[in-house]
Structure formats: C-alpha cells, structure tokens
Amino acid sequence: MEPEYKSKYNAHLIKVILVLIVLGVGGIAAQALFIPSDFGEYGHYRTGAVEDEINRLVRNQTNESCLKCHPFIKKIHLGGVHKTVSCEFCHGPNADHAVDEKKIADMPVKRGKDIKTLCLRCHNKIIRARPEESIKMIAMPQHLEEKRVQTTHICNQCHHVHAPMKWVIEAKKAHGLIKEKEGLFPWMN
C-alpha cells in the first residue's frame, strides 16, 4: 500500500532540529570567541573603553603650562585684570604648539581687526544678555568717541591685550593722576 521511501517518516524533522542545535552551539561558540575578554567586568561595557578615554590626549593645558616657558608674558599677564583669561582661548591649544616643552609649531597671534573681534566677544555692551556686574562692558564706537580717539582705532592701540589697564595705569601714574602702588582696580590687588 505505502510506497517504499528511502528516508524514515521523521528524518527531515530530526535533521532540522540537528541543524538548529548546531546553529545554536555555533552561535554560543562565536559569542565566546568574539566578545572582548574585558567586556562585562564592571557593567555592560568594555573596561578597556574607560582606559581608552583616560588616555585621550590632553590638548588644552593650563595657563601654567604656557607661562612656564614665557616668563616675560607671565609677568604682564598675571599682573593684570586678564589673569583669569585662558592663554589657549586666544592662541589655540598648547598641544598644537609644544610637546614635552619643545616647540613643534608657532601659535597663531591675532592682529588688527581680529583683535577687536576677540575683545568684543567679552566686552561688547550691545549684547544685552550679559550680567552687568561681572566684567567691564563698552559699546563701539561710543567708547572710542568718549576717549577722544579715532573710531578706526583697534583695542590694542590703547590696551595691552594681556594686561588691559597696564598702559593706562602707567600713563596716569606718569601724569600724577594716581599715586604709585595704587592701581585703577584696588580690589584686584
């Protein structure tokens, strides 16, 4: 009645189940092989990733790192109201300039109109959102008119960029408008 078949009636089902088992075991073996050995030590991540992050290159350093090699600028910079201003904000990151205290490239020094743009990033009065008490604000060109100088003047013609009031104070001292030892901003001393 039943024709003769080469395979048993359930041969295909057994084969399918075997294939699935092989796939499953293969998958588990692949997991063991390919998951990084430091994965999951502290959480669901690779511990090495923390080390990778720690070892990232520090590109911006501190003013101390810069001033160590620039004693002349250091004297001026730390003596003025700009001492909290970062060297690298204006000049770029130290990592592009020095490696192990050896110079590898020149730092950009801003000149001309760029200086004015830079100064106004902080000191522009017309950006009204600035809290008034924190730093000195000026409006351009009213400030130049008030000081009776040409409106084409660039900030650093009167202000030393590292110590903005340095020349102003020196001029005032020379004219006897203020006493020696006394700065314009006594609270800065």
């Binding site: 039943e2 024709p3 078949y5 080469k6 395979s7 048993k8 009636y9 359930n10 041969a11 295909h12 089902l13 084969k15 399918v16």
Partner: peptide, 19 residues
C-alpha cells in the same frame, strides 16, 4: 529544500501537518 527526506507517506505528512 525538502530537508533531505523523500518520505511523503501518510505518516510523514501527518507529522508535517502537526509541525
């Protein structure tokens, strides 16, 4: 594709039907 089985007898097909 026939999963290496040529059995299409009643018993095999009944099993297939269950699966």
């Amino acid at each position: 594709l026939s999963m290496g089985s040529d059995n299409i007898g009643a018993r095999a097909l009944a099993l297939d039907h269950k699966v």
